[in-house]
Design a protein around this nucleic acid. Structure first.
Length: 733
DNA sequence: CGAAAGGCTCTTTTT
DNA sequence: GAGCCTTTCG
């Protein structure tokens, strides 16, 4: 029973699992079995030390990581997993505040505003304060506010810290913004943390309740926590002092989100009695890849050196290749993957393509599609960010919390119901004069209208009628929300607003409608809860779980992912593309050496995702911000010893090395078949491996090939290269 | 009021 | 290149 929890762990890992009490710092290199240690440690606490699972709280960086941890733990603990508290700081805080927030005046039904809501509100605040939006960009202000909140600074405190004109602006907007949030009974992401800290400060008895409950606190990815999160962790573990933090300073890549690397670097100072464990054996990568990674990261000045090692074989050399532009880059990736997977020992799902910026995914996607190679894009336009989804969610949020002004403003005229900007602005001003929330003002307007008090109304009679109808719509839906499930409510919202018709007036209405249906079916999980609770729970999930984790682990497809999102994942074959100066490292990091070091850490994270093979691509030219520009190879390529690189080891830098690097790959140009296996003309019926049946719209010659435009039944219009697309002609049309 | 067009900016990473 | 905002016109 106890042995199997330690079996298969090395000495350092075992010690970290067995240590019982007091502060613990686990410094874990990439691929060192960090997640195993955490999960085994939790299981060990429960099974060997008999700590009740209710009394353990484990905090992860993402919801996905939390889900995975639970999954692993359920294998060791079975049903007891349900009793553990596992989640992100944000999710845990939201839970605390739902329960105990009212003690400091937080509405139990508060909404969580995401970045988009935040942006709208900050813009409005800037506008209200009469600041020039040209000079005061909302983005910069938001970042300033967020930085302040991450350090638990109130507007006054943040004004005391800085004295520049900009600091003063931030302070004033911050102040106004908080008022607006309060009026909407809303909290933003940073507020979840900051308000919980405040709750614990102002109500020690509530803090004590949680301190008594949680005997053990574990924090993963500790290098990416901010001050607020660290303070929170200290508060929660303040009584028992059983705080176990796990992280790797070399993988700290979120300082832009105000993560503070000092949290992990100074942990030992904060807790002098802390036990420290080092996990330095790497089980993931080949010797070559690990050596390259070690070499890259060693170029950072601001770091504690550490000794990573592995017993794994040396493996293949790293391939560094120069390509002409982003299109050739993508083709080379696909071709190489094609070559590797032909042997069957590598599957598509073992391959990942990683890049610095999301914008780079577009060309990849188009190329993968054109070649018919299955792929999955991680974190493109996220599901909950789609307009149609946000619209429907806005309705639900408003029904749940009528104070939510951002949601109301969003949907007041969606679908169009004759309430234009003019009317809405006048209405808003009128509401403000009377100190009414939007919703209360709607109610008042309806009353006055019925009393025939025309003169006291702020808008035209046509608009009044529209507002009245809108109010009645909401009233009716609130009624529905009281007694129906989320699924039914959603259906009613769509039906009564005429949203479907609104969608289908657009070209891509069909797809968007499917998204709505997907949203509706995702609400099915909440059927089990009573109507009073289900809506709140559903909205909470929507706010905090930004990506719908399609756990499509079964599907065999190449992963396309940003380097940031790749943290914590591993693949047999990794392609890192766009290794060029100004892109990676990103130009915005140039002015600050600390930021450049963070870029290098990001590179380190990417490289250490690879188990067997690593490909590093840089393009001679690429289109950046709509402009074609030429790029020098990234400085990170110079950080890799030549002996680890395939070919002549020049890092693809001078033209001399170029041919050989190309030879290491299968050049797509030479491999393209000279004779086409298929020819088609407009009107032909065809079938595609991925897209299914379709009809050829047109077919025209392009360089060395033909490009067909095909309308697929399922997938719509696609452009395909005949030489590459897995296409067959159907005989009978 | 609403749709369409043109001009503008900004392009990093996300709980 | 794309999305956002403003302007313009019906």
């Amino acid at each position: 029973m106890t042995l199997d929890l330690l079996a298969g762990l090395n000495a350092a890992q075992q010690k970290a699992v067995e240590a019982l009490e007091g502060p613990i710092l686990i410094l874990a290199g990439p691929g060192s079995g960090k997640t195993r240690v955490i999960t085994h440690r939790i299981a060990y606490l429960v099974r060997v030390w008999n700590v009740g699972p209710r009394r353990i709280m484990a905090v992860t960086f993402t919801n996905k990581a939390a889900a995975e941890m639970k999954e692993r733990l359920s294998r060791m603990l079975g049903k007891m997993v349900e009793q553990l508290t596992v989640g992100t700081f944000h999710a845990c805080c939201a839970r605390f505040l739902r329960i105990d927030g009212p003690a400091i005046g937080i509405d139990r039904n508060f909404v969580i505003y995401d970045d988009d809501d935040q942006l709208r509100l900050v813009k409005k605040a800037i506008e209200e304060l009469g600041l020039d939006p040209q000079k005061v960009t909302p983005r910069a202000v938001i970042s300033g506010i967020s930085a302040a909140k991450s350090q638990l600074l109130t507007p006054e405190a943040c004004a005391r810290q800085g004295h520049s004109y900009f600091d003063e602006i931030v302070k004033r907007v911050y102040e106004r913004y908080q008022e607006m949030l309060a009026n909407s009974h809303a909290l933003d992401f940073d507020d979840l943390l900051m308000t919980t800290v405040r709750l614990f400060q102002q109500k020690p008895e509530i803090l004590e309740k949680y301190q008594n409950r949680y005997l053990h606190l574990l924090v993963d990815e500790f290098q990416d926590t901010n001050i607020a999160q660290y303070v929170l962790a200290k508060q929660l573990s303040g009584k028992h002092k059983n705080i176990c933090v796990v992280g790797d300073p070399d993988q700290s890549i979120y300082s832009w989100r105000h993560a503070d690397i000092r949290n992990i670097l100074n942990f030992e100072k904060d807790f002098p009695q802390a036990q420290v464990f080092y996990l330095e054996q790497n089980y993931r990568s080949t010797g070559t890849i690990l050596e390259a990674a070690t070499s890259i990261i060693s170029h950072n000045q601001q770091r504690k050196p550490k000794e990573l090692w592995t017993q794994n074989e040396k493996g293949s050399p790293i391939v560094v290749a120069e390509v002409a532009d982003e299109w050739e880059e993508a083709s080379q990736v696909v071709n190489e993957i094609d070559k590797l997977t032909r042997t069957k020992e590598v599957k598509l799902r073992d391959c990942a393509v990683m890049y610095r910026t999301n914008a780079q995914s577009r060309v990849l996607e188009e190329t993968f599609m054109r070649y018919g190679t299955p792929y999955k894009l991680v974190g493109g336009t996220r599901f909950y960010e789609r307009k149609e989804i946000k619209d429907i969610i806005a309705y639900l949020r408003l029904l749940h919390n009528p104070f939510d002004s951002v949601s109301l403003a969003r949907i007041v005229n969606v679908p169009g119901r004759g309430i234009g900007h003019q009317s809405f602005n006048q209405f808003t001003a009128w509401a403000g004069q009377q100190g009414l929330s939007h919703y209360a003002a709607l109610q008042r307007l309806a009353e006055l209208n019925q009393q025939g008090a025309k003169s006291s109304l702020p808008v035209t009679s046509r608009a009044v009628a529209a507002f009245q109808k809108f109010f009645e719509l909401l009233e009716g839906l609130i009624e529905v929300s009281r007694k129906s499930s989320v699924m039914e409510l959603l259906g009613e919202v769509v039906a009564r607003t005429g949203y479907k018709g609104y969608l289908f007036a657009e070209d891509d209405g069909e797809d968007r409608w499917e998204n709505i249906q997907e949203l509706q079916s995702s609400a099915r999980d909440y059927e089990v809860l009573p109507p009073g609770e289900a809506l709140g729970a559903f909205l909470e999930k929507v706010a905090l779980v930004q990506d719908v984790d399609e756990l499509d682990e079964k599907s065999d497809a190449v992963t396309l992912i940003t380097l940031h999102k790749a943290k914590g994942l591993e693949y047999s074959v990794v392609f890192i593309i766009g290794l060029e100066e100004k892109l990676f490292p990103h130009i915005r990091s140039y002015e600050d050496p600390a930021q450049l070091e963070e870029e290098r850490r990001l590179c380190y994270v990417g490289v250490t995702r690879a188990k067997k093979r690593l490909y590093l691509f840089h393009a001679n030219q690429r289109i950046l911000m709509g402009m074609r520009s030429s790029g020098e190879p990234s400085r990170f390529l110079d950080d890799i010893p030549a002996k680890l690189i395939a070919g002549d080891g020049q890092g693809g830098k001078p033209a001399a090395g170029r041919q050989e690097h190309k030879a290491a790959l299968s050049s797509w140009k030479s491999e393209a078949p000279k004779t086409l296996l298929i020819s088609v003309k407009a009107g032909d019926s065809v079938i595609h491996k991925v897209f299914g049946e379709g009809v050829v719209i047109s077919c025209q010659p392009v360089t060395n090939d033909f490009e067909a435009l095909v309308n697929f039944k399922g997938a719509g219009l696609k452009k395909l290269l005949l030489s590459l697309a897995p296409l067959k002609k159907l005989d009978n049309p």
